[in-house]
């Protein structure tokens, strides 16, 4: 039981510390010192997955899992590009509005009909993928608004860009809202023990709809910013962004069992994942080593969270204890 508190903070702290130390030490392996550009790149990587990780992580805290965020990410990117050719801000707003609507519909199904979130969001993901294909005709769409593209990725203070700053701002906003209002506690209560939260008087259904609306909004925003940066929108990003976001959320101390996780933890998780990718790039390690690192880190998370494994260990301990206590 005691592991529960520690894990929520320990896992993200340990992950971030490990990765930061490794990042700082990379010059020892490569022989060339780190530059501010390396940090800028790492933060660009963070911007790419951060909002998705935040979206997935928030649903995990409430004991749900939103697979559809990667579909909303694709659709958001596509809509932002098509609606934003003349005005990027308009494109961004339309994309975010669509993302919110998509999330709200799913949230309603999950909250009021009490359908499990995995199949609903999986179906929504497939449908959204189809939508992205249908809007674009299955091809990448070029974003011609060059000013917007240049603006989102310009360097700010050497290491930041408006894109990474916006992503950070989203984390800060969520952290303030969850930490400063009763929403944070209610979200974890819903994930930790839904029956008890109902008994205590939490309006579970409304919170779930709000939650999925938020995750849709964040995912669409992330997708929009990404296509502005790439100056094009890809109708099918594949499952990879979702999986990396899930790794970030899990390293951020959230768990699929729910009831655990904080916005700052998720931030640490997303930063860890981004830094890890940057280390692999800076150290010229083969590409696949990122995947193996993710697998190894997740294996630790899985082992910590397996009740059967814990019981097996207790059994061994009880058997080896002397009979006379």
């Amino acid at each position: 039981m005691r592991a529960a508190i520690r894990q929520e903070r320990l896992v993200p702290a340990a992950a971030l510390l490990l990765v930061v130390v490794a990042f700082v030490l990379t010059p020892l392996g490569t022989g060339s010192p780190l530059t501010t550009f390396d940090v800028y790149n790492a933060l660009q990587g963070f911007a790419q997955i951060g909002l998705l990780a935040l979206a997935v992580g928030l649903t995990m805290i409430a004991g749900e899992f939103d697979l559809s965020v990667v579909g909303t990410y694709a659709v958001g990117g596509m809509i932002a590009v098509q609606a934003g050719q003349s005005s990027a801000v308009l494109g961004l707003l339309v994309a975010v509005a669509v993302g919110a609507a998509v999330g709200a519909v799913q949230g309603a199904l999950i909250a009021w009909l009490r359908v499990p979130s995995v199949p609903v969001t999986l179906a929504a993901y497939i449908a959204l993928l189809g939508l992205a294909y249908a809007i674009s005709g299955g091809l990448s769409v070029t974003f011609t608004n060059r000013d917007a593209t240049l603006w989102v990725d310009q360097t700010v203070a050497g290491v930041f860009s408006p894109r990474s700053l916006l992503t950070l701002a989203a984390f800060v906003l969520v952290a303030v809202v969850l930490g400063g209002t009763r929403l944070g506690a209610e979200l974890r209560a819903i994930g930790g023990d839904r029956r008890a939260s109902r008994v205590a008087g939490v309006r579970v259904e409304r919170k779930l709809v709000l939650l999925f609306t938020t995750s849709g909004t964040l995912a669409a925003l992330g997708g929009a910013l990404l296509s502005f940066s790439f100056a094009s929108a890809n109708p099918d990003p594949g499952l990879r962004p979702l999986l990396i976001a899930a790794v970030a959320a899990l390293l951020g101390g959230a768990s699929l069992a729910g009831g655990r996780g904080t916005a700052t933890g998720l931030l640490a998780g997303a930063l860890s994942v981004a830094l890890l990718a940057q280390i692999v790039a800076v150290a010229y390690l083969p590409d696949y080593s990122t995947q193996l690192f993710y697998a190894a880190l997740l294996a630790v998370v899985v082992a910590i969270d397996s009740p059967g494994l814990r019981r097996a260990l207790e059994r061994v301990r009880a058997r080896t204890r002397p009979v006379e206590a």
């Binding site: 039981m1 529960a4 400063g180 209002t181 009763r182 929403l183 506690a185 209610e186 974890r188 209560a189 994930g191 930790g192 023990d193 008890a196 939260s197 008994v199 205590a200 008087g201 939490v202 729910g258 009831g259 655990r260």
Partner: peptide, 28 residues
């Protein structure tokens, strides 16, 4: 106070005290 507890283990003592309390302010 029921036999079946309505405290949520995932929350702190303080958070449990105010959970679901209609009078609790939205901003803590």
């Amino acid at each position: 106070v029921d036999q079946e507890l309505s405290v949520v283990p995932a929350l702190t003592v303080l958070e449990n005290m105010t959970l679901g309390d209609i009078d609790a302010p939205l901003v803590t």
